[in-house]
Amino acid sequence: MTDQLLEAVREFFKQRGYVEAPRPRGATQAASFFEGGGVRAAVFTVGEDALRGRGEALRSILAASTFREGVDYVYVAVPKVLATVIDSSVLSEQGLGLLVVNGRVVEAVPAKKRAPQQGLAELERRVAELEAQLSRLAKFRVEGLSQAELSRLGLIETQLAELRAKLDSAVRRLEASIASLAERLTRLEEVRERVEAEVEAAVEEAGRAMEAEGLPSYFKDNPWLSILASRGKER
């Protein structure tokens, strides 16, 4: 199922002049990458199979939400049956695009272009670097530093504080997003269970209708059909 999904997505981007790009180092296996016209897009596919594991769909959507590395657009691609239970406004809030696959691909929610920003890993790397520099400079401080060195140190401290603030803010946003997504996922699971029950009932009903199709009128909606069909199996 996921293979068919992916194949449809490839065709979608191909028709728009994109080619499949190699997966950046460290990027998740769940994503596919496409580039064209100086633009890069990442697509996270969530197949119907993901519904079998409670966390599977959430993991894919979270991964898409937090993914920043070197792409301009991030999409989530889902089959039509799943699209009916996804609140597209949540994806939109996160700047994620939604591709609905039903044989062909429809861009249900366009992705928002990601502002060039440093990823969390990059921020952490720079904070660590600046902390190392600060530590080195602190040694000189005790030995007496020149005015120029002190002002440079002040600048580094300011930069460091800004970066830490950015990092804290990013973490807070991320935590809020995770909490919101977790809540949405819980609702999604409830909706899924309800939809599954409805689908099951509809399939059963369709089965009965199909069964009665072409048969005389007294077969239609006759409860005895199921009662009698279980004769001999009731012990």
């Binding site: 048969l215 005389p216 007294y218 077969f219 005895w224 059909l225 009698l228 069909a229 004769r231 001999g232």
Partner: peptide, 9 residues
């Protein structure tokens, strides 16, 4: 009779 004959396994 027709329904019974049809439905009983």
């Amino acid at each position: 009779c027709i329904i019974y004959g049809y439905a009983v396994p």
